[in-house]
Design a protein around this nucleic acid. Structure first.
Ligand SMILES: [Mn+2]
Ligand SMILES: [Mn+2]
Ligand SMILES: [Zn+2]
Ligand SMILES: [Zn+2]
Lengths: 140, 140
DNA sequence: GTAACTTTGCAATACTGTTGCACAATCTTT
DNA sequence: AAAGATTGTGCAACAGTATTGCAAAGTTAC
């Protein structure tokens, strides 16, 4: 237990985020679930934590590149941990997969968002590439 | 005027949509603006039309492949006319571009969504690929 | 220990999307 | 043309998600 908290604290401090109890808990939830979670889903995993606190925790995490957000079209933005070296730059972008059966959204971290040649005069800043279909678990 | 209404009526009837006054108007707005529009933006272009009527009009249009929807991450879904031959199948999917300066979302109809090899066990149904950056107008 | 700063909880609000229901319009049948 | 069936529209209410103001609690710096 101590070791795990130590590990979480390190991850937070590497991103210049003060490791409060709340933040440790939210980080832990995102770490244990191996998929992207919405604010509501995170809230469900606690007994008595205020939504706005989680909301601001996620905002802090995102501002410091500890997590990234995914808009998968379900209406709720989802969040997932970034890799250790991630700075949420174009090269860090990857495709996400939304299963239309179970509703889970997963990072496809080994599938980078392909670089496209934009029409003349357009410049690239960022991208959101979500593929919808049936995931390997639901497929079985 | 008559000619235009005739053209609109044809487009609607080709999709098995009865051409009511409301539907002609909404189609016309989508046709004249050369970009994707949100429900709210469409509502703004009328004096006294109910939002739920526009909402249901858009739903009818989308159910019949007259328009497609884009979730560009701004919080509001946007809608744009489909091409005449479109059936909103994987081959009809194209990339969309959201300008972070002017907020406009455009169809890049000559940029199909690239087909990606998914991990074992995943199947493809649909995709949403939105690129964010500066558009050619704002770039000038 | 006190002051300054940060984090949290609560409540209220904004924004977008969606539905129930009654009335109006249109179509179908006689 | 009238009656009945179907479809479309307007209004109001509601649902779901995101966001903010403010005061209290906690933490850090001096
Ligand atoms: Mn991801
Ligand atoms: Mn489009
Ligand atoms: Zn699944
Ligand atoms: Zn622009």
């Amino acid at each position: 237990m101590k070791a795990m908290n130590q590990k979480i604290d390190n991850r937070l401090e590497l991103r210049n985020i003060r490791p409060t109890a709340m933040r440790q808990l939210v980080y832990d939830v995102l770490d244990k679930n191996k998929k992207a979670l919405s604010l509501y889903e995170i809230e469900q995993q606690f007994e008595d934590v205020d939504r706005s606190t989680i909301f601001r925790t996620l905002k802090t995490f995102q501002d410091n590149y500890l997590i990234h957000s995914i808009d998968d079209g379900t209406g709720a933005v989802k969040y997932a941990l970034c890799d250790e070296e991630c700075t949420c730059q174009p090269d860090d972008l990857h495709i996400h997969f939304l299963c239309t059966k179970c509703g889970q959204t997963n990072c496809l971290k080994n599938m980078p968002v392909p670089k496209m040649d934009l029409p003349q005069g357009f410049s690239f800043e960022s991208a959101n590439f979500v593929i919808k279909g049936i995931c390997s678990i639901c497929r079985k």
